[in-house]
């Protein structure tokens, strides 16, 4: 373990302890908000894997978030799977969907890729929305488990924190692995990787499936959090939320999406308390970030000497 690694581990540990303290110190309201932030941070991190590392901009990432929620909910409601086992069904369904849709999408690039991911997500949404007999349609699935399995907001927050940390650890290892290097290379120049003997589409698919799986994990946590599942979880609004988080937090940075999720949800919660038009503020912040700090908050933090988990090794 190098000094750099030790330094980084200490910061991660510090951040985890701080998050746990926040969860328990300020009452259930803050614990609930903190939990939502952590779930969305995980979702945004999964999108970041394909965006910042894989060079793929998805307009349909929420499909896998939504399927994570529905995989969990449907397993209980329609198949009488014990809840503990149903937890795994969410991410697995999302992973399989990502494999299916991804294998179609990675054949395209740029905006065409983005539009096909959007189409896949909208088709998913339509199925969730209209298959009343199976998915409950637009009324969703409710009352199949108690929200948070009946845990206190603080305790469930702690569970989510642990899942988030483990996920980040896995993603961090992935990024540093040979496959991670391959994903970055293909993300930068698929043409070059093909001429070196890579099958770029297969590498992109691998990234897409991993990202889909983690999005599904986040969706499952979200479903447990609220004790329900709605088609909107797979909708464009959730995708855009995650995209905005990644950009505000900082593209091409590992921890950027976490900063992004914190800022975005704090803005959403507190600004909307005073002004109805909080999206106006988000729009202005976004514009300021793109024009003034294209590396986002993580970029600003790096300039102040806080490690951003950026891509320099």
């Amino acid at each position: 373990m190098t000094a750099h690694h030790r330094h980084e581990s200490i910061i991660w540990l510090g951040a985890a302890v701080a998050a746990a303290v926040v969860l328990f110190a300020f009452g259930p309201g803050i614990a609930l908000l903190g939990t939502e932030i952590m779930i969305m941070a995980l979702f945004a991190c999964s999108l970041n894997l394909i965006m910042s590392y894989g060079g793929m901009v998805s307009f349909g990432h929420a499909a896998y978030f939504g399927l994570g929620a529905y995989g969990f909910a449907l397993a209980i409601v329609r198949f009488d799977v014990p809840p503990a086992l149903a937890l795994a069904c969410g991410p697995i369904l999302a992973l399989l969907a990502a494999l299916l849709f991804g294998s179609l999408c990675v054949r395209l690039s740029h905006i065409y890729f983005a539009m096909l991911t959007l189409a896949c997500a909208e088709i998913t949404y339509a199925i969730l929305f209209q298959a009343y007999d199976f998915t409950g349609g637009d009324t969703g699935l409710t009352r199949f488990v108690a929200p948070r399995f009946g845990l206190t907001p603080q305790l469930y927050g702690l569970v989510v924190l642990v899942v988030l940390l483990l996920s980040l650890l896995i993603l961090r290892r992935l990024v540093a692995s040979p496959l991670g290097l391959a994903i970055r290379s293909v993300g930068e120049d698929p043409y070059r990787t093909a001429a070196l003997g890579y099958n770029p589409r297969r590498v992109q698919l691998a990234a897409f499936v991993v990202a889909g799986g983690f999005a599904g994990l986040a969706g499952m946590l979200f479903s447990v959090f609220h004790g329900n599942a709605f088609p909107d979880y797979a909708g464009l609004a959730f995708t855009l939320d995650a995209l905005v988080m990644v950009v505000i937090g900082g593209l091409h940075s590992f921890v950027g999406p976490i900063y992004g999720a914190i800022i975005y949800l704090l803005m959403k919660t507190f600004i909307s308390r005073y002004v109805g038009e909080w999206e106006l503020v988000v729009g202005i912040v976004l514009m300021a970030v793109v024009l003034g700090a294209p590396r986002g908050l993580a970029g600003l933090a790096a300039r102040l000497g806080i490690p951003s988990g950026g891509r320099k090794s």
Partner: peptide, 20 residues
Amino acid sequence: MLASLLPRAGLIYSLSTQRL
């Protein structure tokens, strides 16, 4: 350079940082 060595080494889909 490492990225260029992956295909021949058969490590494109490997998760082992050690091998890298």
